[in-house]
């Protein structure tokens, strides 16, 4: 273990830290360096992420199949199969989502449930794994590797793995517990009261490993001198962690919180590969996908759903980050 004791930084243990030192005025040359550092990433992010995202906001007020251009005029009723296209519909798409799109509200509900399960189970589990591994118990490398495995697998493989596990007649669970006959089978993925939970097991399986690795990297970066200082004082491991290490990991904890929220709101692939997110597995991002990416797409309507998703995730995260920064600056 390379946790070499280094006497050079003993003062750090004296929390809270001193007020963050402003780095003083920047010279002209430094300003240029800073601009150079920021230019490319900012332009790339604006052009390829924010530009299209804002365009989607505009699209959400149109009825558009993705073919041809947009026209600044109101939509005309069609009557038959072929509809008016590329025309302005105002907030109709939003109205339709809220009042006349059966999967919408179940999707909102499932996203919330997903978030709760991640907050209560998946993320704490991943953090626990990281803490235990960080304490250097025997075989920690093996545990770490295995727990991280699900994160590394492609969606195709994950889909197959859980199909093998949950398949009603041939699957692992039903065969082992003897419920694979037609008169007694448990329909893990088809029963709308059951399937979300079944999928959440798979999602937790993946999320815990993900959180573990991020957190582990955070723990490794934490100053070992802290621990030593605390333990020399006679604190036990539990106390050491909660009183000394956990507070210094605040930035990493923020990462974990944000990642948890993002992952629950963006959750998509597992349910999509199972049944395109229908019949009890509705999630917002799947609805977005089903409407935007598809044979004849409803890009306008799908964009409206995307905007809803964006707004409900953007608001809490922005407030959280802003608050967090303010506090940091103010110290």
């Amino acid at each position: 273990m390379a946790s070499t004791v280094n006497d050079a930084s003993p003062a750090v243990a004296q929390a809270p830290k001193r007020r963050r030192r402003r780095l003083g005025r920047l010279t002209k040359k430094e300003i240029l360096v800073v601009l150079g550092m920021l230019a490319v990433p900012v332009v790339v992010d604006l052009a390829f992420v924010w530009g299209p995202a804002l365009a989607s906001v505009v699209l959400s007020f149109f009825r558009w199949s993705g073919v041809g251009g947009l026209h600044p005029r109101a939509c005309r009723p069609s009557g038959g199969l072929i509809q008016d296209n590329g025309c302005f519909t105002g907030v109709d798409n939003y109205h339709r989502a809220a009042t006349n799109y059966p999967p919408f509200w179940p999707a909102v509900e499932h996203n919330v449930l997903w978030l709760l399960v991640f907050i209560v189970i998946a993320t704490p589990l991943g953090m626990l794994f990281a803490v235990v591994i960080d304490r250097g118990i025997k075989g920690s490398r093996v545990y770490q590797s295995v727990l991280f495995l699900p994160v590394m697998l492609s969606l195709a493989l994950i889909g197959i793995i859980w199909e093998f596990v949950y398949s009603p007649n041939y699957g692992l669970i039903n065969t082992v517990i003897g419920h694979n006959q037609d008169n007694n089978l448990i329909d893990w993925l088809g029963n709308p009261h059951l399937n979300l939970w079944a999928v959440l097991v798979a999602a937790t399986w993946r999320q815990a490993g993900y959180v573990m690795v991020l957190y582990l990297a955070g723990l490794k970066a934490a100053d070992p001198a802290l621990r030593e200082a605390a333990q020399v004082d006679g604190a036990n491991a539990w106390q050491t962690f909660w009183r000394v290490i956990f507070p210094t990991l605040r930035p990493i904890n923020i990462v974990i919180i944000v990642v948890t929220v993002i992952e629950s709101l963006r959750a998509f692939d597992l349910v999509y590969i199972i049944n395109k997110g229908s019949n009890g597995l509705e999630l917002l991002s799947v609805l977005v996908t089903n409407n935007i990416v598809g044979e004849t797409s409803q890009v306008g309507f799908g964009s409206a759903l995307g905007v809803v998703l964006l707004v409900i995730s953007l608001i809490p995260i922005s407030i959280f980050l802003y608050q967090n920064f303010k506090r940091k600056e103010g110290r």
Binding site: W50, A55, G66, I262, I292, L314, I317, S318, F325
Partner: peptide, 20 residues
């Protein structure tokens, strides 16, 4: 800037694909 980058990360791929 931090919010710009972090929030950009919230966008599902499907939302930006058509304009992109």
């Amino acid at each position: 800037l931090l919010i710009l980058f972090t929030a950009g990360n919230l966008l599902p791929q499907q939302v930006i694909i058509t304009p992109l």
